[in-house]
Amino acid sequence: MASSGLELLWVSAPQLARGAWQTLSISASSIAFATLGGIAYGVLRQLGKRWLDVPLRIYLELFRAIPVLVWLYLLFFGLPIFTGLSLPSFWCAVLVLSLWGASEVGEVVRGGLQSLPRGQREAGLAIGLSAPQLYGQVLLPQALKRITPPTINVYTRIIKTSSLAVLIGVVEVIKVGQQIIERTYESLLIYGFLFLFFFLLCYPLSAASRVLERRWSHA
């Protein structure tokens, strides 16, 4: 049984690789956009301007209140209705994961900036730094250490949540697996493989996050 299982995986490898590539593409793109968006969100909310803060807060609460899967459906089924545009499911997934991920990374960035001593901001202002200089030269570099481990955890969650893309029809690794099962009925083997696939993607990240947190946690 084991040998035929491995044989099957070997034979299906090209297919599975294509599916895995889709999964990785969705995850990687979403992680990249979420990081950029999250830094922007965190900094903008720290500026303390009301006209920025209120819409950003609404954006945050919307992505907290509405589960990601619901957002996927809203975008996939709802966008054509409202705008007549229809986005391919791959990009729906990336868009939703990026926006959701940005809100999560954003809150981490905001918390990190908030936890810095207030005097750093004042000392920077006192020598005449502009806001971009203040954040770029003084605040963000210092916040980096406390931001990185939780942000890596968000990346892990983005990878896991990207699995939901199969439910709006993206042909990623789970879909490919299901196609193989339809032909061969080897459900235990394939789902076991998928279990291992995601575990091997996420575990190193979780472990890295823990190591960094321990190494960088000074008072």
């Binding site: 896991k160 949540t161 699995s163 939901l164 995601f198 575990f199 996420c202 979780s206």
Partner: peptide
């Protein structure tokens, strides 16, 4: 470190 969907599908399928 694994998605809920995979855990669910594993149990169900």
């Amino acid at each position: 470190n694994t998605p809920l969907l995979i855990q669910l599908f594993f149990i169900y399928f």
